[in-house]
């Protein structure tokens, strides 16, 4: 899922303080799981903004709402007219949701309420870790299911660098060395010799370095067209 963190309140306030009708708009999928931008968080943020507006002596109408997904039009199209009655939308969805809404909402600004971080897993409640970088060219079959792109600080393809230290990365003792994890995993799988194979230079054009990416399923697109 996509992991995000709420922006500092001061930053949010600076964005919206000149507007009079504000909608704090939450997304109940990924960012609700990471307690950053779901309906509950949107409601809390709206309450904080109302209190701040009272303290500053600004007459501001702050509403909140949430839908299940900000990344598909079916979910927010039915309430688009209501959304458009506001002066500004403070979206607590991920960056995808902010982009998607901004493209469709017309001349009303859409501001981000959270900083979108990464694709993450939840090993324990309250802890979110990055396990996949979405590079568009998966090599997990070569590395025992542990991604060197996401989990090695240098995204190395051929073993650890000199900074590996007792299983930890040189950037921080809190960060596991991705390649240490890969080697240990391959040992367990009895496939360590596979790592001796040198991986060639990688084609990064499948990651965002090649420009915005797009996947089109022709068979589904055609059905939609009909």
């Amino acid at each position: 899922m996509i992991v995000g963190e709420q922006k500092p309140f001061e930053e949010i306030w600076e964005m919206i303080k000149s507007f009079r009708k504000v909608l704090v708009f939450g997304c109940n999928t990924c960012v609700a799981i990471c307690h950053a931008g779901g309906g509950k968080e949107a409601e809390i943020l709206a309450s904080l903004i109302r209190m701040k507006a009272i303290q500053e002596g600004i007459g501001m109408e702050v509403k909140h709402a949430a839908i299940e997904r900000h990344c598909e039009p079916e979910f927010f199209d039915p309430m688009m007219e209501d959304i458009k009655t506001n002066d500004v939308v403070l979206s607590t969805a991920c960056g995808v949701g902010v982009n998607f809404l901004a493209e469709r909402i017309g001349d009303i600004p859409v501001f981000p309420g959270i900083n979108t971080q990464f694709f993450g897993a939840v090993p324990k409640a309250g802890i979110f870790v990055e396990l996949c970088a979405g590079c568009g060219n998966c090599i997990l079959h070569l590395t025992g299911g542990i991604c060197p792109i996401a989990r090695c600080a240098k995204s190395l393809m051929n073993g650890p660098c000199g900074g590996t230290n007792k299983g930890k990365c040189e950037i921080s003792q809190d960060v596991d060395c991705g390649w240490y994890l890969i080697v240990e995993r391959m040992k367990k799988l009895g496939a360590l010799e596979k790592l001796y194979e040198i991986q060639p230079l990688r084609n990064w054009s499948t990651a965002t370095y090649g420009g915005p990416r797009r996947v089109v399923l022709e068979h589904i697109k055609d059905i939609e067209g009909q």
């Binding site: 992991v3 963190e5 309140f9 001061e10 904080l48 701040k52 303290q55 971080q117 993450g120 802890i127 979110f128 870790v129 990055e130 921080s172 809190d174 960060v175």
Partner: peptide
């Protein structure tokens, strides 16, 4: 998401509320 604090650097905490 793990934030490592720089040793010796303390973040100044601002109150949202005006005193």
């Amino acid at each position: 998401m793990v934030k490592v604090a720089e040793p010796g650097v303390q973040e100044e905490v601002h109150s949202i509320e005006k005193p």
